[in-house]
Design a protein around this nucleic acid. Structure first.
Lengths: 261, 261
DNA sequence: GAGTGGATTTCGCAT
DNA sequence: ATGCGAAGTCCACTC
């Protein structure tokens, strides 16, 4: 029951049919999907045991392996791709698939005793994936459009190394005061405030000027406002999605300028 | 092309065939797999865009959604299960599938223009999943690799019977002080601290040397730190999974070496 | 319901 | 190699 160039679909197959198909798929770096009743053992960084049930097994062209149950966003067992070695064989009318990798040393063993479908094919996929509005994106957005922070802000450097770690953005406000900016892309907790506090302390010991510390985040956790005030820090609300808008527009603009010249 | 009770398999189907199958699968909380050429947009906590290519779409019975590329352990786009609303419809010989959830507000839109396979079925799965790293494993791990407790620790005995019960591990630190170790695999409460306190008292009455008591656990409950200090005890954070790592590494390594050849 | 911490986290990037 | 931090993190547990 097959079709197309690389596509192979087996419905209610015998175990040895799947054995052949799986070996062929893995050796040719195809994508392999098996749906059936199985149980799974994992040994490595921890140990786990999954009792029999119907699941979806996916083995991708890079050797990554996923076992998915009928519910849940996450795989119940998995193996990240890379240097993974597979072993497929029939044993007493059961199909045993074992995936082993060295670094870190771990093993996933899947045994099927009933298979509903087995599908293998080459996935042709060169489409680009782009994600906007990471923490780095927010930083870039502020560098491109400093008014996002406040009017008159002028960035000097970014990711400047100071004693406890890195300052996200570092600049001057309209009155010439130093400004240290710490960026979080989601609700800022105590951790972020203390981090900024440590930055500020480190900078104060070196520069003998007035320093403002600004925490940039879409929102702040419940009791954190108090901590901010206590440490003499400020808070500027900024949604990562706003930053994404700036980035995409500015990118388009720069592209236009480039082609305009 | 179908079989079994709930299993439906379509190979190289027309778009409207898949539309019907997908609507049927989603409305009946079946598991749905579509393999084909698609592009994906995500709007929500961030924005992402995936250009056209062949991928695997999985929609599970709980509404969780996964888009997998030909490589990588992680999905390129996804939606965790729960209160997810799906919308499936054909538009100009393309199949548009949209998943929306409110908390947090986000949307994944997938458009297929060519479909290789569409599979839907009910996955019957009641098998239990257990992740194993018991208190005994943690103890053995510390015996195998005493540095897990602290550098220079040398175990002498384990599960040694003392007055109130058993000491988990008993040894000397780098300075020759006696060390009594109590292990909990879950968050340690006051109970564990008092238990260790009783052990310490029992040992102190026999040995006339300085004794350190260390509570080993992945975490400690809220007010327990205070109790520890009061009783002059220490706390060492240690995750049972880290211990499982130590335990299984050699066995897994040997296996990896075998299959590597 | 929000905050906090862990994960077989994975995946970068910097040292 | 190692270590640190981010993630559309997710998830479970505490408060």
């Amino acid at each position: 029951m097959s079709s197309s160039k690389s596509l192979t679909v087996l419905v209610d197959p015998r175990i040895n049919e799947v054995e052949d198909a799986a070996k062929e798929a893995i050796s040719h770096s195809k994508t392999l999907l098996i749906i059936g009743r199985c149980w799974v053992d994992y040994h490595g960084r921890a140990k786990s045991k999954l009792e029999p049930g119907e699941r979806i097994l996916i083995i991708k062209s890079d050797g990554s392996l996923l076992v998915h149950r009928s519910v849940g966003y996450e795989p119940v067992n998995w193996m990240p791709g890379g240097n993974v070695i597979f072993n497929v064989q029939e044993r007493g009318n059961r199909l045993e698939i074992r995936a082993v990798r060295q670094k870190p040393p771990e093993t996933v063993t899947i045994i099927f005793d009933k298979i509903q479908t087995c599908t293998s094919l080459v996935l042709s996929d060169s489409g680009e994936f782009s994600l906007y509005a990471s923490e780095e994106d927010m930083q870039r957005a502020i560098l491109i459009k400093p008014d996002l922070l406040e009017e008159g802000f002028r960035p000097i450097t970014y990711e400047k190394k100071v004693e406890p770690g890195f300052v996200d953005v570092y600049g001057e406000d309209r009155n010439g005061k130093f400004v240290v900016v710490e960026i979080k892309r989601k609700t800022a907790g105590k951790e972020a405030v203390f981090q900024l506090g440590r930055y500020i302390d480190a900078v104060r010991t070196k520069a003998n000027r007035e320093i403002r510390g600004i925490l940039v985040a879409p929102s702040i956790a419940k009791g954190v406002q108090r901590t901010l005030v206590t440490l003499g820090l400020e808070y500027k609300q900024l949604d990562p999605r706003k930053c994404a808008d700036v980035l995409t527009r500015s990118a388009t603009k720069r592209l236009a300028e480039f082609f305009g010249q």
